[in-house]
Amino acid sequence: MAKTELNRNTETETEIEVEDSSSLKGTLASVFLLGFILIVTWVSVYSLFLDRS
């Protein structure tokens, strides 16, 4: 199954993993989005701190 898909879909290897039923790619993307929010918040308030000091 994977092999036929590989033949049909020649884009990238990750494409296959995305379609894998046990893939956690979405989880990885989600937590990194969360991490991004943490960093942006922290950096913003730290900039405010620097601006006011």
């Binding site: 995305v18 379609e19 894998d20 046990s22 956690l24 979405g26 989880t27 993307a29 989600s30 969360l34």
Partner: peptide, 24 residues
């Protein structure tokens, strides 16, 4: 956070979800 997203994604994929965020 990781465990929860993983639970959600695994469930969605077991129901045939495709793509990066299809499980949502």
């Amino acid at each position: 956070a990781f465990s929860l997203f993983a639970t959600f994604e695994s469930y969605g994929r077991s129901k045939g979800a495709k793509g990066l965020f299809g499980w949502f």
